[in-house]
Simulated assay, not measured.
Amino acid sequence: MSEPLTLTSLPLFPLGTALFPAGRLPLRVFEVRYLDMIGKCQRAGAPFGVVALAQGSEVRVAGAPPEQLQAVGTLAHIEQLGQPQPGLMTLVARGEQRFRIDRQHRLPHGLWVADVTLLPLDPTVAVPDDLQPAANALRQLHERVAAQPPEDVPAGVLVACDAAYDDCGWVANRWAELLPLPLATRYQLLTLDNPLIRLELVADMLARAGISA
């Protein structure tokens, strides 16, 4: 059995949401600490880490205590990057592998970096018959989005990479991104290692919301 892969000094982007593997996250970056980080990651072709906030705000407020970060996050690679004006970057980040923070450190200019251990990828688990409505509803949503002009697509609804409507983890992750969930619930789903259980929980949420039968 191979040792888990670790990364040192991974730059972190704390957010009031969670990024899931294979998901796509649009970001607007204007703080100096993150403009510098994104520029360096783009030039090096290197990832950064998206972590959910346990406490604090996405935008640093003078005099406020440092942010508190959740222990599990997701590697993010820059898929699209633009600079519409000086001091502003827009990008789409693609979620890759989850990680667990081993040690974290806040640099003088406010950027968090961490030594992390990568977590195992989800095993491929076929969507069982009783959870198929969740997969069907997701496919229908994506088909409706694909048929709309880009300007009519709701903010944040980005069709994820490499569609896999027959895989429990992929379907659960996409719904976890789309549903209007409290951050604590979304983070809990991210930390679950069993993709079947993750999809079962999501299917219950969909049923309560009347989204899938």
Rank of each mutant, 00 (worst) to 15 (best):
I78A: 12
L53N: 02
G16R: 06
A172T: 01
C161N: 15
D152L: 11
Q132F: 07
R100H: 09
R198N: 03
G210A: 00
D122Q: 04
Q42W: 15
G82Q: 12
F99I: 03
N136Q: 08
P47G: 05
Y34F: 14
V125I: 00
V159Y: 04
D130E: 03
L192I: 11
P133R: 00
P11S: 05
V153I: 11
L12F: 07
V113P: 06
L192G: 10
M89R: 15
G23V: 01
A160Q: 14
L178D: 03
V127W: 02
V92S: 06
A76N: 06
H105D: 12
L15M: 11
A184K: 13
L19Q: 03
P47K: 01
V125T: 01
A155W: 13
P128M: 02
A46C: 12
E58N: 09
L5S: 06
Q140F: 09
G73T: 00
R60D: 13
P133A: 01
A213D: 07
I101A: 08
D204N: 04
L5K: 14
R186P: 12
E31Y: 00
L12T: 10
P65A: 01
L118H: 02
D166W: 06
L190P: 03
A22I: 08
S212A: 09
L15P: 07
I38Q: 03
L69Q: 01
L27E: 08
Q85S: 15
A184V: 12
L181D: 02
T17K: 06
L69W: 04
A62F: 02
L189Q: 13
D162V: 11
I101R: 07
G63K: 00
N173D: 05
L35P: 11
A203K: 05
M205L: 12
P108A: 05
E79G: 07
R144H: 06
Q85N: 15
K40L: 15
Y34V: 04
V113S: 07
L192H: 10
A126L: 09
S2N: 12
R60A: 11
P180D: 02
Q68L: 07
V202H: 08
L121K: 12
A22C: 08
L158V: 09
A213E: 08
A22Y: 09
M37Y: 05
P182K: 08
A44T: 05
L88C: 10
A44M: 10
D152E: 14
A147G: 07
W170H: 02
V145G: 04
Q148V: 14
F99C: 04
D36V: 10
V125R: 01
P84F: 14
Q42F: 15
P21K: 02
N136T: 09
R139E: 06
T185P: 10
Q42E: 15
D130F: 00
L15D: 09
A93V: 04
A18Y: 01
P47L: 04
C168F: 02
G87R: 13
E3Y: 13
Q68D: 08
P128K: 00
Q148L: 15
L19M: 03
P21W: 01
P180V: 00
V127I: 04
H105A: 08
P133E: 00
A207M: 06
I78L: 07
Q85R: 15
P21M: 01
A172R: 02
R174N: 14
E31M: 04
P149F: 14
V125F: 00
T124W: 11
